[in-house]
Design a protein around this nucleic acid. Structure first.
Lengths: 345, 345
DNA sequence: CACACCCTTGACAACGCAGTCGATGGGACG
DNA sequence: CGTCCCATCGACTGCGTTGTCAAGGGTGTG
């Protein structure tokens, strides 16, 4: 343990004040950038601060101000691409706005672990909550969140009125993917949906179904995945058994990868025999053996918008702008093409 | 805002005490499970606690006990598989041990953002720090961390003495991958390394080079990637130009995917012409169009070990066990096979 | 020249909780 | 029946900070 460390530990405002020859309150003013401090004094205090390595004690500050500046993030702790990577974006954005992020990750998506996670966040004194979990949970209402503002970009929670939803335009994204395949000449499009407890799954599926219906095409029953490549693979095996499948829209890239492998195993070539579209544009989608056509949503700015929305709710008690659409974009790569010419109908 | 919410907010020990007809101190004892409280009183207090929805104020507690029970995690905020997913494991493990995780994610790997991240953690009163960043940073020493215990599973930091390193056996893992390819009959193995600022990259590369040397094989110069599939693709394009390349070991799965795509584009079939081995066993590795042979390390138990090590350091001031090896395992799938019979030498 | 006003600074209290120590009461023992 | 002891409980204090309020000194104005 270095000397500096020992010295630094336990340095409080009073020590700084003594060194600078001012009162402890004046140090407080300088540290917090309060007005009405002579520049000369301010400098002297700041010099003392850096000489002693003073760092304000957040606990004491939180105690007296009744503000923690902590935002809670409740996320599923599984290996999902979206939630995992949004954590970092949110943390950086929070820090920029003067907040910290308190993470509670759920080992599973049971109602039990959900409530434990929320309790953990409430105990930590969060001032608002961001939800990155499936929204179709049963026993949830306003009281669950202690009356705190709740923001989510992944769908409305039934029974909770005090929430803001950032609409990331998942339905439009589903439409984009489906229309792309129809435009290529496919008769219809099959869909490997995500788990329907997630609102985003439903929206992507609805966009898919609506587009097919609008084009007067048959809407085949969708298959269900769990976001994993494995589940995509299993769905893909089912689809590979049918010879009327020429186009598949998967609810995320990993499921799409599974579909592609299943098709490859069944001797169906991509995109000659079957076209596949994913969702998310994970960084490696472009570098699959057959580069994956996918839908990219601007999850970065979506995350930042979620956060600034929540901060507005915390600080001014009202939403600045609700239900904003976030851009989405089809990225056409090589996994999609025209349907095979001699397909049976 | 529900009534419950309004009522719950601002409930302190004194309110509970009043309702239960005891002193505030007794409530404290009950809440903290202190001894010498009559069961009858304990029950009465607990009833009052749940009736009022009382939750202890962590700030006040931290202030008086001088303990925050917060552990800092400094991680790169890029889209890396490892750090992103270990966050969740660490958070859950921390919660089980009675700690919270404070996350600081770096927007880039500059020395500047590194120091900002550390400062942010120190201000939040962390009691120890976990590092998930490249270890080859220049201007770092013990003072940087305020004398706090530092634990990492990804390599030793030059200049920092007060740290514990959990050896996750990366060299052995690199050996496994290389030996597998040699055993299949390949003359030598090419390597697409990760960025060498990461100790793990170096260890995997060393394992590779050592194995080749031990077998008396030529050690080709390694290519460098940045962990991304794109960088793997670029390296793969270089490798595809040489016709003596029959086996490639990539430092992570995403780079391996890029290599596979490059090979496919160049008309080299996998595994008939070229064998590829990755590292990490990301969930989708198994479901690539050619399922990827890879090395799986038990990053789950490695993370938990890192955490319990840090907690031991915090609570007892000493490491319980240093330099523990964590298991690694070769997972053979379809991206590796015997070299082509008629290769030129 | 006097008065009012503002800028600047400091003394004091309070935030919610746990540590300390003393008070109370009942039971065991002589 | 008295004494001691221990289990149980409460009053008081302080953790490090900010909010409140008042005091001091300088400036501008009538």
């Amino acid at each position: 343990m270095s000397m500096t460390a020992r010295d630094t530990r336990g340095v409080v405002m009073f020590d700084v004040a003594k060194l600078a020859g001012v009162s402890q309150k004046t140090v407080s003013r300088v540290v917090n950038g309060a007005p009405h401090v002579r520049p000369e004094i301010r400098e002297r205090v700041m010099a003392a601060v850096s000489e002693l390595g003073y760092r304000p004690n957040v606990a004491a500050r939180a105690l007296v101000t009744q503000r923690t500046h902590v935002i809670g993030l409740l996320a599923v702790g599984t290996l999902l691409y979206g939630p995992a990577h949004r954590v970092f974006t949110l943390e950086q954005a929070a820090r920029e706005l003067g907040y910290e992020l308190a993470l509670a990750s759920l080992p599973d998506i049971s109602s039990d672990s959900f409530h434990h996670g929320i309790q953990s966040l409430l105990t930590r004194g969060v001032e608002g909550i961001i939800l990155e979990v499936p929204t179709h949970l049963t026993d949830v209402d306003d009281a669950t969140f202690g009356g705190l503002p709740v923001v989510t970009s992944i769908g409305k929670i039934p029974g909770v009125t005090h929430q803001t939803v950032i609409n990331s335009n998942q339905r439009e994204a589903g439409r984009l993917a489906t229309q792309h395949l129809l435009d290529l000449g496919h008769e219809t499009v099959f869909h490997v949906a995500g788990p329907l407890e997630w609102d985003v799954s439903q929206h992507r599926r609805d966009g898919w179904a609506d587009t097919l219906a609008a084009a007067g095409r048959p809407v085949p029953p969708e298959l269900l995945g769990d976001w994993s490549a494995r589940s995509g693979y299993e769905a893909g095996r089912e689809l590979a058994e049918r010879d009327d499948v020429t186009a598949v829209f998967a609810a995320n890239d990993h499921q799409a990868m599974g579909v592609m492998r299943a098709m490859a195993e069944a001797g169906r070539s991509i995109p000659a025999d079957v076209s596949v579209v994913g969702f998310d544009d994970v960084p490696e989608a472009e570098f699959q053996m057959v580069p994956l056509t996918t839908v990219r949503t601007d999850s970065y700015s979506s995350s930042r918008r979620v956060l600034s929305e929540l901060v507005a709710l915390i600080e001014h008690g009202e939403s600045t702008s609700e239900g904003i659409d976030v851009a989405c974009e089809l990225v056409v790569r090589r996994s999609t093409g025209r349907p095979p010419p001699h397909r049976r109908d």
